[in-house]
Each structure stands twice: as structure tokens, then as C-alpha cells.
Design a protein around this nucleic acid. Structure first.
Lengths: 103, 103
DNA sequence: TCCAATAGTTCCGTATTTTCGAACTACCGT
DNA sequence: ACGGTAGTTCGAAAATACGGAACTATTGGA
């Protein structure tokens, strides 16, 4: 019943990842997702309320295109999941370290 | 004879650092500086030739304002130095990890 | 001292990117 | 089929980045 909204990209670049995380809203989303291995909906992981839905949608697109997350459609929601293993394989220790200092 | 071009900022933010490094030109500059503890001139650490001087100058400003580097004027040049210790104090292990995966 | 060369910065117009409202699509429950 | 919820796409306005031209500052040489 759940299927990928987009294929998960496999050529993750360091600049892409850093650029994606170099925005307060996206870093907040990733921090939220880091605590939920099973993923969260777009609204659920939102960095704040009051942000336009279209803006939020753009942030999720950047996160997806940078390879930080993947999205599966489940019913009416998109479930976003942090690609910890893929990132660990590509850039060992990087995401862990960033999340650690992001407390 | 060498003096600060600007005061080095002391409130380094994580988003600022990630945003600064999330650009190919600036990441290349930082990688160059990482190998020269005594600093390099703007032109010397340039990521490529052919980039406009004004663009390069803007990149150094972003790096300085994010807290990644400081600049001292020495003769006709600006010497740029990576603020490894300050960054290590603020975000332990972060810069090291990024440089490691940036090989 | 005056001049030319070198290294960067600032200014400013253009180009790209980001933001958000409005309209649209998709899915569920009734 | 209808209404409600979740997100995306479109288009215009606001914000930001790029780069050429002009400017400042310093050095070395005539």
C-alpha cells in the first residue's frame, strides 16, 4: 500500500548534503526525522507552524534530491524517512556528527 | 604589520557553517586552507581560475561571516586562516569529519 | 616622489533562487 | 459522490548570488 513518491537518488554529493542542511527549516526537519526511524509525515516533521505548505513542500524536495530522505506515500500522507544507512555508507560518520553537534 | 581585516565573529552557528560549506567553491577553499595552518591568500586558495574576483571576494566574506575563517591583511594580500580551534571548541569533531569525507 | 602592477573590495545591474498564496491532485471515510 | 485532509504545482514577488567596472590599498621600481 505504501510506494515511493520518487525514486531515491543514489549519487549523494557532499555539497548537496551540506547545502540541504545549511537551512534552519531543513535542519530542523532532519533533526525531527532522526528521532523517528519509521518516518514522519511532512506536516508531522514540520519545523514550525505558520510556514506555507508550498514552502514546506519545497524543503522536502530539496532534502529528497540531496539524498537525505526518501518519501513513500501512505494513504493521504507522505512518510519521510532519513536515509541513515545510505548516508553512513557514502559519508561515514558525517550525519551522526552533524546531529550530535546540532543537539 | 599584519592586522585583522575584520573582527573574527564569535557566535558561530551550525546552519551558518553548513550553509557556507554547502557550496562547491567555498568547500574547495576550505579544503585548501585545511592543508595550510599558516593561511593562504585569497588568490592562492582560490578553487579555480576564471572565477571573477568579486565572486571570490563574496565567498570569502561568507566564510568569514560564518566563522569558518579569519583574515589578516599582510602587505597587499589578505591571508585567510581556517579557525580550526574555534570550530572544534564550538562543534567538536564536526569540521574534522567533514574534511575527512571530503577527501 | 611618482608611476605601474598586484590584490581585493564595493557598487550595481542582471540572473537565479526562495517564498507563499491560489488552484489543483490524490486519497480516505461516510 | 461529497467533504475533509495532505501535499504538489504554478506564478508572481521578494531575496540572494554572480560578475563586470570602477575603486582602494600596498608594494616595488624609475
Amino acid at each position: 500500500m505504501a510506494f515511493f513518491v520518487h525514486p531515491a537518488r543514489d549519487d549523494i554529493s557532499l555539497v548537496g548534503v551540506l547545502n540541504a542542511l545549511g537551512d534552519p527549516a531543513r535542519l530542523a526537519i532532519v533533526k525531527n526525522l532522526a528521532e523517528k526511524p519509521d518516518g514522519m509525515s511532512c506536516g508531522g516533521a514540520a519545523p514550525c507552524d505558520g510556514m506555507a505548505r508550498s514552502t514546506l513542500s519545497n524543503h522536502y524536495r530539496v532534502l529528497r534530491e540531496s539524498g537525505l530522505i526518501f518519501q513513500v506515500k501512505k494513504g493521504v500522507e507522505n512518510i519521510n524517512t532519513l536515509r541513515r544507512d545510505d548516508l553512513e555508507a557514502r559519508f561515514p560518520g558525517l550525519l551522526t556528527q552533524i546531529l550530535k553537534v546540532a543537539d
